[in-house]
């Protein structure tokens, strides 16, 4: 089960204050990067729930995010539905599709699961690419942001929008923790460790997988809605499998199955990408080499490495010295 250690709390506080500091001090470009990080963080959170706590390594989360973005764009522009309703509709639709994908793929394991999710993601990608209603490879523009003027917030201002994304991410993080601590989340981890045993205990394994995949899809869909509102323009590239691959890279760089790690990974990845692409056009080379190094080192990403190295020591220092340190959590095997 997911547990917050003192170290995890500390990193969360650190990340939140860094984001708040950035949101209130940065100029336009800094705010754009912050928003990009926050949206990516939401996507990788969704991926970490299924991959880190359910062993379902999905290569369709980029496509799910794209579906959320397209659903919002179509509902709010073509269908002319009010943005809040369109947002809810897009999230619900993405969740439903994800639930179906999870249900269909629930029998596959390992590489077959990866391939099956890849197939569904690519299916969505090609459909969006070809169907005229989605604007083909021209994409869709003119997407409006949520109107919060009744409480005096103008989301067209990039500072307000960054803060809005930060608040959404905070809420989603809380929801993710609740999901993982619920009976459903515990069943999911049980299924990851031993599917046979959970079945013997009377659990309907495919339902557990599908339900969590659906919830994760809703989070990915929300990330897509925010991405569409952020850029105000969407293109089929959003659904491409390389987006899902990149999301997986971020989860791994951060630390699979730690929930906090992927947030660290998202921040590190976006900053690294921007810094490197300013220096060289070959930033993929560096990211690729880094990824290989992280996976080969057998550490569980940046955060996982810190946790394994100094986790117990930092926790002891952070918690009351009189209390016994908590039993170290067994991390999901990457």
């Amino acid at each position: 089960m997911f547990r917050h250690t003192a170290l995890r709390y500390a990193v969360l506080v650190l990340l939140a204050s860094a984001a708040l500091f950035q949101a209130f001090t940065a100029e336009y470009f800094g705010l754009e990067i912050l928003t990009e990080i926050l949206i990516l963080a939401m996507l990788v959170l969704a991926l970490d729930i299924v991959a880190g706590f359910g062993g379902m390594v999905s290569l369709c989360h980029g496509a799910l995010m794209g579906m959320g973005a397209y659903a919002y764009a179509i509902l709010s522009t073509t269908a002319g539905i009010a943005p809040p309703v369109a947002m809810a509709g897009a999230v619900a639709l993405t969740g439903a599709i994800a639930w179906a994908i999870g249900a269909i793929c629930s029998r596959s394991h390992g590489i077959y699961f990866i391939m099956a999710t890849l197939a569904f993601g690519q299916m969505a990608y090609s459909y969006v690419f070809e169907a005229p209603i989605f604007g083909g490879d021209d994409g869709l523009g003119g997407i409006s942001r949520l109107d919060l003027s009744f409480v005096g917030i103008d989301l067209n201002d990039s500072r307000s929008f960054a803060l809005f994304c930060l608040a959404s991410l905070g809420a989603i993080y809380g929801a993710s923790v609740l999901i993982l601590r619920s009976g459903l989340g515990r069943s999911l981890t049980g299924v990851m460790h031993n599917e046979q045993r959970m079945r013997a205990l009377g659990l309907t394994v495919w339902r557990v997988k599908a339900d969590v995949f659906g919830l994760s899809g809703m989070i990915a869909g929300l990330a897509g809605v925010l991405a569409a509102q952020h850029i105000m323009y969407i293109s089929p590239g959003l659904l491409s499998w390389t987006v899902s691959g990149e999301a997986l890279v971020v989860v791994i760089l951060g630390g699979l199955g730690t929930l906090v790690g992927p947030l660290v990974g998202a921040a590190a990845f976006v900053v690294l990408k921007h810094e490197l692409s300013a220096v060289t056009t070959y930033w993929h080379l560096v990211v690729g080499a880094l990824l290989i190094a992280v996976v080969m080192s057998r550490a569980n990403g940046i955060f996982g490495w810190i946790e394994a190295r100094w986790g117990a020591r930092i926790d002891r220092r952070l918690t009351d010295a009189t209390r016994k340190p908590e039993a170290k959590e067994v991390l999901g095997d990457a």
């Binding site: 991959a51 390594v57 390992g110 590489i111 990866i114 691959g245 997986l248 890279v249 791994i252 056009t281 070959y282 993929h284 080379l285 990211v287 690729g288 080499a289 880094l290 990824l291 290989i292 996976v295 080969m296 095997d333 990457a334």
Partner: peptide, 23 residues
Amino acid sequence: SGPMAQVLVTFGLIFVLLDLTRI
């Protein structure tokens, strides 16, 4: 290693080889 580690290492390799050919 498990399939996921292999997928990731070779995914990284795609990035590396792609940029090497570009260079």
